[in-house]
Simulated assay, not measured.
Amino acid sequence: MATVELTTANFDEVAERDGIVLLDFWADWCGPCKRFAPVYERSSEKHPEIVFGKVDTEAQQELGAKFNIRSIPTVMAIKDGVIVYAQPGALPESALENLIEQVEKLDMEEVRQQMGDHEHKH
């Protein structure tokens, strides 16, 4: 599955679905974003079971603000509606593949439990 352009209109529907959703926050003027785009695209073709979304931070400033995106590109991974990874910086292909493997292995029951434990401590 190729990449999907996300906007405020379709973001929640896509991000909250079961399974893995990867997001690339980018902008047209951003050199590293342009270099990362083909890596992201190739990865999307290798993993048709994963949704690869792209958020243009210029056109979708509300989404950039909602997720406190300060630096682009930022890659975010969501599994079963929970953000499990968010880091700025273009990833080399091997690191992106490694991230996908790690997210696939996550036990979401455990993640939710840890999140609950973390919230109780604050």
Rank of each mutant, 00 (worst) to 15 (best):
I100Q: 04
V51Q: 03
A77F: 09
I83C: 14
M115Q: 14
F11K: 10
E101P: 05
P38D: 06
R42M: 07
I20L: 08
D117F: 11
L63W: 06
G89Q: 04
H47L: 05
A15F: 15
R70S: 14
Q102W: 07
I100F: 06
M76N: 03
G116M: 12
D117L: 15
L22R: 00
R70D: 12
P32C: 10
A95L: 05
P73Q: 12
R70K: 14
E41K: 03
G64P: 03
N10P: 00
G31V: 14
E110I: 10
K54V: 01
A95F: 12
L22S: 02
G53H: 03
Q60V: 06
T57M: 09
G116W: 11
D24N: 10
K105M: 06
V55E: 00
A27D: 08
N98T: 13
I72S: 03
P48C: 11
W29G: 04
G64R: 14
E109M: 05
L99H: 04
V39E: 01
E45F: 08
V21D: 02
I50P: 01
G19E: 12
T57E: 04
M1D: 09
M1C: 10
A90K: 04
A15M: 14
D12P: 02
K46W: 09
Q61H: 13
V75C: 06
D24V: 04
W29F: 05
T7L: 09
L6Q: 01
Q102V: 10
N98G: 04
F11W: 10
I78M: 11
E110A: 13
R42I: 04
A59F: 06
L106E: 02
T74Q: 07
E62A: 15
V14R: 09
N98P: 00
E13T: 14
V21S: 02
V84M: 11
Q113E: 14
T74P: 01
S43N: 08
D24W: 12
A95H: 06
A59G: 07
H118L: 15
H118T: 06
I72T: 03
I78F: 11
V55A: 00
I100W: 05
E97Y: 07
A95I: 09
F52W: 01
Q113K: 15
